[in-house]
Design a protein around this nucleic acid. Sequence first.
DNA 1: TATTGTTATACTCTATAACTATA
DNA 2: TATAGTTATAGAGTATAACAATA
Lengths: 153, 153
Amino acid sequence: MEVTAEKTIEAADVAAGLERLVSLIRWLSPGGMSLTSAATLATLEQSGPWRLTSLAAREGVTQPAMTQLVRRLAEAGLAERCADAADGRVVQVQITPAGRDFVERRRQVRAERLSGLLTRLPPEDQAALAAALPAIRALTSAERDGSAPLPQA
Amino acid sequence: MEVTAEKTIEAADVAAGLERLVSLIRWLSPGGMSLTSAATLATLEQSGPWRLTSLAAREGVTQPAMTQLVRRLAEAGLAERCADAADGRVVQVQITPAGRDFVERRRQVRAERLSGLLTRLPPEDQAALAAALPAIRALTSAERDGSAPLPQA
DNA sequence: TATTGTTATACTCTATAACTATA
DNA sequence: TATAGTTATAGAGTATAACAATA
């Protein structure tokens, strides 16, 4: 009972925290690619090949938008499309070695910029962040089935 | 020495964790407003009035882009522009009561969707996230002076 | 007939460059 | 002359609707 109440409160607090992370992430991120494209590439790097439709649902964009996004990534040589042997309709998308390099370079730039902010935090905050990293990974890796984001609201 | 090494590693890990949060945030967020607009409104809600140029730097967009963004927020009644008594060139931007309501509603929707994911995490991950919230708030509230994001890279 | 993905079109949002106004 | 902000224009990126292909 109390557990449920605590979790509800926590969800609201986490939601409030997530909100302003967008500003921080944009500030940390090098230009030249949209946040959506970068996030998609990171998903491909960490979770292996994806079907185009699943990837669109995962990233919270429409199927046509993902078609275009993948086309841009492919033109840049960062990802590639592969046919599915079992189902002729399906398009598999996977990252290329150049894509991995790109993700890695981008991550380094972010890390450098972030480093300056982190060192100004009190040690206990730094420790709390480090301790929460596995949880953040688990949260971003969790399946997001069922309720897709509503188109309008 | 070792401390420095540990911090560098931590920054890279945090940077990798941040990357995929964009997917999660987009998936959690109701449509109808860009992530940038929502993040800007959240900044105004939590940090009070901002000068237009400072706000643009803060959110990682150009000054003309922020002019347009604020115009859209003002047209929607969510923010308002005020003159600065001390300097006739300056435009102050602040959130309206309707803007606060909007932020709150949006936060609730995110919290509901997030709740389903959180309850599927192991208790220790939930606890770690809750413990890291003050650190996340500190990180997103920290000043981001000096090195603005590069235009191209 | 249902599902997977693409194409067509219009709209939102952003950046660069050129400009106005105040200091 | 420098700074704060706006306007003009072009381009990137996205959604909706209509379509083609495979199951």
